[in-house]
């Protein structure tokens, strides 16, 4: 095993790493806010919204992510009439499927966080004159974040690994390049390199979440 072969395998895989990180970043950045909106719908008093949000969570958590991924890329475009409006390139399709799927999980995590907040907190803000928006921003969300952080951290690490699924719709992420190299050279080394890359990403995430949890430890 020489350095040249290592670089030969690694460099294309880094390109894949950028794709992986793109999907990861888009998913985290969009599914967290979307998940929070879904939580508010579930916890809110508007019955139809609540029903829609509960159905959404049920379907997205109850079916395989792989199926959702394939449905967004292959399935949506062949829907009658409206299909033509849902033709996405591979990467976009991957991001859409992941955002929708992870939002459902984050919604459930945030719901747990909200449920853990003592009702005395709401009573205190009410008698102090804070309105609902102020209560949400200044009192509820910070406490929800603290409770949710360990689960969010867990989910985030799962997400890094799940990104490998998008190779099945032909997105050229880390695993795609690993597979190509292994097939080409009949050598497992590329799988090892891929594993190291996933571990490296998750190492960074673990450190970041440790720090975050510390700053939310009150």
């Amino acid at each position: 095993m020489n350095v040249n072969y290592f670089l030969n395998v690694l460099i294309p895989m880094l390109k894949g790493g950028i794709i992986t990180l793109t999907v990861f970043t888009a998913t985290i950045g969009l599914s967290i806010p979307l998940g929070f909106v879904v939580t508010l719908m579930v916890m809110g008093k508007v019955k139809p919204l609540k029903a829609v949000a509960e159905f959404y969570i049920y379907v997205l958590r109850g079916t395989p992510l792989l199926l959702q991924l394939m449905f967004v890329y292959y399935g949506l475009p062949i829907l009658p009439v409206i299909g033509q409006y849902f033709v996405f390139d591979r990467l976009t399709a991957a991001c859409i499927a992941f955002v929708l799927n992870y939002a459902a999980y984050f919604a459930e995590i945030f719901r747990g966080g909200l449920l853990s907040i003592d009702k005395g907190q709401y009573e205190a803000t009410k008698v102090l004159g804070l309105n609902r928006f102020q209560t949400m921003i200044k009192v509820v969300i910070p406490q929800m974040i603290r409770v949710s952080l360990p689960s969010v951290s867990n989910e985030t690490i799962t997400l890094v690994k799940d990104t490998a699924l998008i190779t099945v719709i032909g997105v050229t992420e880390i695993l795609h390049y690993a597979k190509t190299a292994v097939n080409r050279d009949a050598n497992n080394f590329a799988f090892l390199v891929a594993a190291m890359l996933y571990l490296l990403i998750n190492f960074v995430l673990t450190v970041v979440f440790k720090k975050l949890e510390k700053s939310y430890d009150f």
């Binding site: 003592d118 005395g120 907190q121 009573e123 205190a124 008698v127 009192v139 910070p142 406490q143 603290r146 939310y216 009150f218």
Partner: peptide, 11 residues
């Protein structure tokens, strides 16, 4: 109002 369980904001 002052409550039995204080209801301070813990964060």
């Amino acid at each position: 109002m002052v409550f039995q369980h204080f209801n301070l904001f813990p964060h």
